[in-house]
Design a protein around this nucleic acid. Structure first.
Lengths: 140, 140
DNA sequence: CTCTGTGCAAAGCGTTTGCAAACGA
DNA sequence: TCGTTTGCAAACGCTTTGCACAGAG
């Protein structure tokens, strides 16, 4: 709670009820689309406007508080910015799970960037497939 | 040329002027947005409709001829489907470059999926940063 | 000849914008 | 109090849809 107040303050954003609860929900769900966020927060703050969610997402991505996770064939999800990691994305249920970022991959990506004189900024490694649950129940 | 005729046929799609030239342009540019494609093809086929481009993109992605490359903060680009590889995406000029997919990465991703009982389907590894050209000229 | 694909125009939606009121610091 | 943020409603722009005609096989 207080965590997000200072996170916002450090990013030069005022801490409002809307922003704090957007961050809390994103933190607890891990990855959420705009609509997911709106639906969650509007429950505890019925006058919330979707436009407010959009404005804040744009602002918090700009400030580096949130990171967009673009997903093939679907709408982007958003997560709290953190160290590089790998996303396991279920193509059936849409769930996104984090896996710690293997050191070897980091090394390979870094040296690859050097070879190309590419000034590396951010890595996004997405593995698409079926989570164990969806794989077990193919007809849903 | 004939290449795309058979690629389309094998995918169960009729080979039309529009589709062949969409594929030719995507092949020669590597990665294109919907608008890029439309602008290129409309030059040699002025009556082309943007709706046709949309319809064909959807169809060809479904059939596996094309692959969508979703990019943080931008519109998706499309490429001819091919073996897994890595994208170097310039956050300044938007250029996308392919790098061969390192065997080690493949191994790591595969074993990681196994650990999680995740049935791996497709990998998308995107490295965001600045290409050497944009890095040299920061004020554009 | 038949079925698929195209082009046009309209409809649909997700996203953005402008502005007055509410709010945080 | 002052600058920022919110909520609403309208505007926007990308994408999809329906339909009649054209084209591929």
């Amino acid at each position: 709670m207080t965590k997000y107040v200072s996170l916002l303050k450090n990013s030069g954003l005022k801490s409002t009820f809307q922003r704090i609860h957007m961050l809390e929900n994103i933190a607890s769900c891990g990855h959420m689309s705009i609509d997911d966020i709106y639906e969650k927060v509007v429950k505890i703050h019925p006058s919330l406007s979707l436009a407010t969610v959009y404005k804040n997402i744009i602002l918090m991505v700009e400030k580096g508080v949130l990171t967009e996770v673009p997903i093939t064939g679907k709408k982007s999800k958003y997560e709290l910015s953190k160290e590089d990691h790998i996303h396991l994305i279920c193509i059936a249920c849409g769930k996104v799970e984090d896996k710690p970022h293997n050191l070897h991959i980091n090394t390979i990506c870094t040296s690859m960037s050097k070879e190309e004189n590419f000034v590396l900024n951010k890595q996004q490694i997405n593995l698409y497939g079926k989570c164990i649950t969806c794989h077990a129940t193919p007809n849903v």
